[in-house]
Amino acid sequence: MGYLRAVAALAALVVLSACAKDVGDSDRAIQEVSYSHSSPPSLTLLTMVHNTTGAGGHSSLLINGSERVMYDPAGRFKTRAVREQGDILYGVTPAVMKRYQSFHARDTHHVVIQEIPVSAKVAEIALREAIKQGPSHDAMCAANTSAMLKRIPGFEDVGSTFSPKGLSRRFGKLEGVVETKYYENDIGQN
């Protein structure tokens, strides 16, 4: 019986690995859109929350370090202004950030934005860890974001969770987090 369980588990892993996104713009394309923002280094957790139920729908992490990127695990945001490699969106200018928020906010959902200042060193560690995390399977955004955050100095206590709302609650307890919310009333036709 144990042998059959092991074979079934291995088969499930093979099937899941085949479902991983194969996203990868070239390094040259990424360099062409690389963007550095003038604000101090920070990490910003974005959580998409259902307006009626309060349930979390998606998690992503904006990393503002030597360049500004979005770790968007299993995300669906696409625009010609950014390049993507392994769930990292490169070229996150203020206009792209506005478009990203608008893409997710609609009559049914709003975006909770939780920003925390970090050192330049911590921002670079976050970027390396996000790259190392690699592409995500669907429905793994909070799990992969929390797994990545646990490897960053000062964020170890965020813990592991599959819940975007749970991750937002834990992130919000960190000292220095500033929270804002972004709403739109359209039907998601951004």
Rank of each mutant, 00 (worst) to 15 (best):
R80F: 00
A29L: 05
N51E: 09
V7M: 01
S59L: 06
H137L: 13
N190K: 12
Y71S: 02
I116F: 05
K165C: 04
A142L: 03
K121H: 13
V111Y: 04
V49Q: 05
G57F: 12
G172D: 08
A8S: 09
E179M: 14
A120T: 07
E156Y: 10
S38H: 13
H58K: 12
I30D: 00
V7E: 00
S42V: 07
K121I: 08
A139T: 14
S119Q: 09
T52D: 12
S38K: 13
D87M: 07
R5V: 03
L89R: 01
Y100Q: 01
V178D: 14
V14A: 08
E115I: 04
V112L: 12
R76V: 10
S26G: 09
P94S: 15
G54P: 05
M148F: 03
V15Q: 04
G75Q: 02
A126S: 11
S59E: 07
H109S: 12
L127G: 01
P94L: 13
A81T: 02
L127A: 05
E84F: 03
S168C: 15
V23R: 10
F77P: 01
S42H: 12
A6C: 12
A95L: 08
Y71C: 01
G2V: 05
A147N: 06
F77G: 02
K78D: 04
A120H: 04
Q189K: 15
R28L: 04
A139Q: 14
T47H: 08
P73Y: 09
